[in-house]
Simulated assay, not measured.
Amino acid sequence: MALRPLRRSRKNPTTVLPAPAAHPAHAPATSRWLLLGKDGRLNAYAATDGGLLCWTERRPGGPEWSQPLFFEMPDIEHFTVAQGPNGYVHLVVQRRSVRDDGLIDVGMSHTTQYQSGRRTTPWHPLGCPFADTEHGGSLAQPAATVDNNGSLYALPCNPRGRVSLRAEKRDGKWGGWVELPGDGSHESLTAFTTKSGKVQVVAVGEGTVQHWAQTEPGGEVEPASTRSVCLAAGSVTPLESAPDRISLYGTDAKTGELVVHRPGGDTVALGISPAAGSMPAAVRTVIDGHDCTVIAVRGQDGRLSVAACPTGAEESGAHWSATGDATAGAPAMALDDRGRVVVAAIGTDGTLRVTRQKPEPGLALEAWSRV
């Protein structure tokens, strides 16, 4: 089969409807799907048949949530979410459909949600960086991030295992697709922006992790390092553990154990073996006056396990506690309007499940609620 870009639609508005009851949420492939809106309400996003779902807290700090909105968009293969310092949420989807003649139409689109729980802008097609390439399988999960100027960066892995990038300019116009330098063996990727405003891209290959970064905000995304570490594709979550220093949480491809790989090549085992293909969620917060990293990961029995450890000092030990029922896909975590840790997951029945940090010392979680 041959891949072709999806044709640009002259009229492609975003449709907002109540979520179809027969369309449960799909298991998330990324842990970045729970975000704090600029009005202080958390928003959770998930793919479903024919589009995307969006749940929103009814008030800052919860605990009640709205029924999900449904943003119609057919043929979604993958989606990811990015948010800039202005609080706007960017939904980026990768679409794939097989035509009657056997050709595969593929392309990326994005839409922006300016307010929590509200309709998004019309879908904007981003095109495809790898037209007319022979390829019969699925494409990798794309990545996206927003810099401190509010510009969106969209990144897919093309069929040759190379990373392509298309970025929005400051005037709102889009640049063309560019291919980042690399060895072409990348199997999954993620992107994020540091607090200083520098865009970072991390791609996992067989036995290596490739890192690209901006040396200054708004600059070119350039090769930064190649780390010889065996992390499983699709399992890596980055976290800024110090200014412009990135720690990678993922599954060791050889041992199956969750590890953290820190700048300088230091790798620390975290004492738990996630379910195959599971991506952890990680967030930094202050617990009892200490800078801590909270990690949530789906175990081999499907239940989530949560642990907290000193940021940058994971070797001091992570004490895991299993919680809730079996879930599907990657969990997500964020801090709510009051600074409390919130953990979200999609149940095996396709419903949103949420738990929140109790207002007491340490990291104790409330009972899970089904939204």
Rank of each mutant, 00 (worst) to 15 (best):
I246T: 15
A364D: 14
G362K: 08
D291V: 10
R284L: 11
G62W: 02
V341E: 03
T15I: 02
R32W: 04
Q67P: 03
L3A: 08
K195V: 13
G312H: 06
R7I: 03
G175D: 14
G62K: 01
C292L: 06
L231H: 02
D75F: 14
T193Y: 08
D105Q: 05
V221L: 14
T80C: 15
T133E: 15
Q94M: 14
E220F: 05
R284F: 00
D336L: 04
Q210S: 15
S188M: 01
I246C: 13
R166T: 08
G265N: 12
T30I: 08
H211S: 02
A233T: 12
L258W: 07
Q83K: 01
G234Y: 06
E222H: 09
G84T: 05
H261M: 00
E216F: 10
Q115H: 10
D337V: 12
S225Q: 14
A322H: 06
S278D: 08
P159H: 10
C54H: 14
S66R: 07
M73K: 15
A296T: 12
S278Y: 02
D183M: 01
L352V: 07
P74V: 00
A203W: 04
S97H: 03
G317D: 06
G175I: 01
L52Q: 11
E64T: 03
I346C: 12
S138M: 10
V16Y: 00
T80F: 11
R7T: 07
P63Y: 03
T193E: 08
V286M: 12
L363I: 09
S316P: 00
W177D: 07
R10D: 09
R95M: 02
H90K: 02
A144T: 07
N12T: 03
E179N: 05
A364M: 01
L42F: 04
G197N: 10
G347D: 07
A328D: 13
P122M: 06
E134I: 11
R96G: 04
H26Y: 11
T267D: 09
L270F: 08
G150W: 10
Q115A: 13
Y114D: 07
Y153I: 08
Q210P: 00
E315C: 06
I346A: 06
A318W: 13
S185G: 08
V199C: 13
I104S: 10
D291T: 11
R298L: 09
E179K: 07
W55H: 14
V283L: 09
S109R: 10
T348Y: 03
L180H: 03
C157L: 15
F79T: 03
A233S: 15
N158G: 12
E168H: 00
L91P: 02
R227P: 00
E77F: 03
Q210W: 03
N148E: 07
G117P: 05
G350P: 04
G362I: 11
S196L: 09
E220A: 14
R8V: 05
L189R: 13
C309S: 15
F71H: 15
A332H: 02
A367Y: 00
V306G: 05
H290R: 15
R59G: 01
A296N: 04
Y88A: 12
W65R: 04
A47Y: 01
T112D: 01
L91G: 04
A307Y: 06
A191P: 07
P280V: 08
K11G: 04
E257L: 13
L36M: 13
R353P: 00
